[in-house]
């Protein structure tokens, strides 16, 4: 089963992304959520989701570190990661690339764009 993980410490953002991706559930995609980096890393290792929407600024473990662990340390190349940042600074973009993120989105993002990306990556 195709899985998508949404990671953000803000409940409304998680809800927003969940609703945006709602239609995917009809196509058999399972949506998982986590509200911190440490939980996210555990879920990624256990569930091996195809796609992760990953917030950067989070308690316990930030998005960069989670991304680094997944892509660089665990070599889970088949897990696509879209970093979501509220900072919108060049440094973040570069840092995101360094830790192996596939896509980098700045908040506020367009839900339609987010859905399009998910469909392309999940090939649904």
């Amino acid at each position: 089963m195709t899985k998508v993980l949404i990671v953000d410490d803000e409940a409304y953002i998680r809800l927003l992304i969940e609703q945006t991706l709602e239609d995917l559930e009809d196509q058999g995609v399972e949506i998982l959520t986590a509200d911190n980096g440490a939980d996210a890393l555990a879920i990624i290792q256990e569930e091996r989701p195809e796609l992760v929407f990953l917030d950067v600024m989070m308690p316990k473990m930030n998005g960069f570190d989670v991304c680094q662990a997944v892509k660089r340390d665990l070599k889970m190349e088949d897990v696509h990661i879209i970093l979501l940042t509220a900072k919108g600074q060049e440094y973040d973009k570069q840092h995101g690339e360094q830790v192996g993120a596939d896509v980098y989105l700045t908040k506020p993002f367009d839900p339609d764009q987010l859905l399009d990306m998910a469909q392309v990556i999940l090939k649904v």
Binding site: L16, A86, K87, K107, P108
Partner: peptide
């Protein structure tokens, strides 16, 4: 400014995103 930007973007994301939905 970096902090303000961050703090503003999060609610703005919800406002714009949910409005669009």
């Amino acid at each position: 400014l970096a902090n303000v930007s961050h703090e503003l973007r999060t609610p703005l994301t919800s406002i714009l995103g949910f409005t669009r939905i």
